[in-house]
């Protein structure tokens, strides 16, 4: 089991993290961040394995991974 934390005010909503997540555990947040962008957030109840693929591809380095 793993867990991610997203620094949502740095996220630009490019969704590359969601595109590489093998567990489809990342979704778009409904609200806007400080930049007026819909950031991503971990999907509740998703089976995150802590593989860190999302963090590896995040251009803003705004994902921290715990395992």
């Amino acid at each position: 089991m793993g867990r991610i934390a997203v620094d949502k005010d740095k996220c630009k909503g490019c969704l590359l993290c969601a595109s590489v997540c093998p567990k489809e555990a990342i979704i778009t947040d409904s609200g806007l961040n400080k930049m007026g962008i819909k950031a991503v957030k971990p999907k509740e109840g998703a089976d995150c394995s802590g593989c860190a693929m999302c963090a590896l591809i995040c251009p803003e380095c705004c994902i921290t991974v715990y395992k």
Partner: peptide
């Protein structure tokens, strides 16, 4: 849980 990936 321990941190396995973060900002350098």
């Amino acid at each position: 849980m321990e941190k396995v990936f973060g900002r350098p």
